[in-house]
């Protein structure tokens, strides 16, 4: 609804400087676009405008900018990019906040820690591989009717719910000085998994059924690229759009790893 509601009075323009790249291995370039600002505009609505009017500021026709997005409500995590030097979701990035005046500039870049597919679209598959690595699931006995799940206190639910709102957007990884771009998928296993994955490991360790795989998760996180690669810069928790207590997860997994490490040392695995 309200399609026609915003048609009135386009007065203000914003300049978008966008770092573009035609594909893997291709050079990057900057292009600038002048975009009229609608009321309640966000970066997405401006990118939509550019898609429909792919002409640069100096009047040169170009291709529409490619970017990844889906829900536009900051719950799917797709539209993450680097805006004015900081990583965030572009859907919740309001123009009135970022560029309040006529002619203000907003810069858009793809996330730097993931291989670029094209323009602002990056390949975050490594993140999902990380979820496999730590077996981020509850190992249930199939989908048959086997009664309800374990009971849980409201306090415990609060802890798990906060962790479970992670939408795998990758902000924490983009801002992490220990998380580096790795194009070679065969090296993902020993490259740092990052805060999101560590936090998911904690999420499932906190669940009675999930905890059955706790040792497996800790074993996976004790190796190279695991919990010990964290450098405690704590940027992750600062840039997390969902305010997930990532550093608490890291410390909690640190504690579990301490105990697990001792156990393993003395038991001799």
């Amino acid at each position: 609804m309200g399609n026609g509601a915003n048609s009135g009075g386009r007065t203000r323009n914003v300049v978008f400087r966008i770092k573009r790249c035609d594909g893997p291995g291709k050079p990057s370039r900057w292009e600038a676009f002048r975009v009229p600002v609608e009321p309640n505009a966000n970066v997405i609505s401006c990118l939509n405008w550019i898609a429909a009017h792919p002409v640069t500021m100096d009047g040169r026709p170009t291709t529409p900018v490619v970017w990844d997005s889906n829900c536009l409500e900051e719950v799917c995590g797709a539209c993450t990019m680097v805006i004015n030097g900081r990583v965030r979701q572009s859907c919740s990035c309001l123009i009135d906040e970022y560029a309040p005046n006529d002619g203000d500039t907003i810069t858009l870049e793809p996330m730097s820690k993931f291989p670029v597919v094209r323009d602002l679209w990056v390949d975050r598959q490594r993140l999902f591989e990380g979820l496999k690595k730590v077996k981020a699931w509850a190992p249930i006995d199939g989908t048959y009717s086997l009664g309800d799940g374990p009971r849980e206190s409201p306090a415990q639910q609060h802890v798990r719910y906060a962790l479970s709102t992670c939408m795998s957007c990758g902000c924490c990884l983009e801002a992490c000085p220990q998380y580096l771009k790795e194009e070679d998928a065969s090296k993902w296993d020993t490259a740092f998994v990052g805060a999101a994955i560590i936090s998911q490991a904690r999420l499932f360790n906190e669940h009675p059924t999930g905890a059955i795989l706790k040792d497996d998760r800790l074993d996976a996180l004790l190796g190279v690229g695991g919990i010990n690669d964290c450098g405690n810069a704590q940027n992750c928790v600062r840039v997390c759009p969902k305010d997930i207590p990532l550093t608490e997860s890291i410390a909690a997994i640190g504690r579990a790893a301490t105990i697990h490490g001792f156990k393993r040392f003395f038991r001799g695995a």
């Binding site: 509850a138 086997l146 009664g147 309800d148 009971r151 479970s164 499932f204």
Partner: peptide
Amino acid sequence: PKIIDLLDRMGVPFNRTAEGRR
């Protein structure tokens, strides 16, 4: 109700009552 039970078993953090029920 079976679907809720299954989701509960999968670990969905349903909001809880004081007694720990859904």
